[in-house]
Simulated scan of single mutants.
Amino acid sequence: MDFGGTKIEANVLDPAGSVLWRDRVPNPGTYPKAVAAIGDLVGAAEQALGARCTIGVGTPGSPSPRTGIMRNSNSQYLNGKPFGSDLEAALDRPVRLANDANCLALSEAFDGAAAGVGSVFGLIIGTGVGGGLVLDGALLDGAHGIAGEIGHLPVPWPQGAELDPPPCWCGLAGCCETWVSGKGFARAFHAEHGQTLTAPEIVAAARNGDPAAKQALTDYTDRLGRVLAQVANLLDPDVMVLGGGMSNVAELYPALPAIVRHHAFSDLWDGRIVPARWGDASGVRGAARLWPAAGTAEHQAAG
């Protein structure tokens, strides 16, 4: 399951990673209805396949490793709720939860754009910004379950408008999410140019030669490059994989390495920055990978 802000997607994978069944429904936007929607998707999948599935869920935010209570989710109605245990009660089986960026990183490290390397950083730049780290094929959650959460660090090496940072929903100000998420891109464009456009509309205008939109995309690319340079300096991964809506902007990839190289504390930084192989399906595939890849008595299929 990929629990998104606007939709909930379910895939059922066989142990080799082939998709046996998929569906998505709108996220109903309230906690009880969301739990029920997941139950309905699981029921539909198992009826279609005639098999009982293991359940992995990629979520915005993450459960506390000490209490199991959700925190740090920009789908704020999840925060403070025992999402995992409520799903286990509704589905009558164990459920594994992980942050959606962790799921992206796990998917891409397993059989995606970063397969076969030792260290992978996954960054979602969509409605929000989240990061996850995989080392030698295993997720690194950290002592408090927040490893890789770059979205709520400030934009590094601030300049210009960044010196007067906007508030973030988390209670701080100037977080990366307020600048390099899709919403942050649109917010910054409105603040700078007084126009209300979505991120895809700004990108389209830039491609059509609009000067304000071209400058906004240049500024966005520079900010994202500085964020990734911070990742390089802190974690130095082999590959950084981008997911979420902004990862589909092809103009980013030729420009980002030089920006990272300029800010990285190295004379030879040559890491790779790539889009997710599995696109917006990477999170749901990574959620399935929270269970073993090979069939066991417990594992008939991963969904």
Rank of each mutant, 00 (worst) to 15 (best):
A44I: 00
E46V: 01
A48I: 04
G50H: 11
R52Q: 10
T54K: 14
G56S: 06
T59M: 09
P60T: 06
S64T: 03
R66P: 00
R66T: 02
R66F: 08
G68C: 03
G68A: 05
G68T: 03
I69P: 06
N72H: 10
S75R: 05
Y77F: 15
Y77L: 10
N79Q: 08
G80R: 02
G84W: 05
D86Q: 15
E88G: 07
E88V: 05
A90S: 14
L91C: 11
D92H: 15
D92Q: 15
D92M: 14
D92V: 13
L97I: 07
D100Q: 04
D100W: 05
A101H: 11
N102D: 15
C103T: 13
S107Y: 11
E108F: 14
A109N: 11
F110T: 15
F110N: 11
D111R: 15
A113M: 11
A113Q: 14
A113C: 07
A114S: 13
V117Y: 14
G118W: 00
F121S: 06
G122S: 05
G128V: 04
G128I: 07
V129D: 12
V129N: 03
G132I: 05
L135K: 02
D136G: 12
D136A: 15
D136R: 14
L140D: 01
G142R: 09
G142P: 11
G142M: 12
G142V: 07
A143T: 08
I146R: 12
E149H: 13
G151D: 03
L153Y: 07
L153E: 07
P154D: 09
V155A: 12
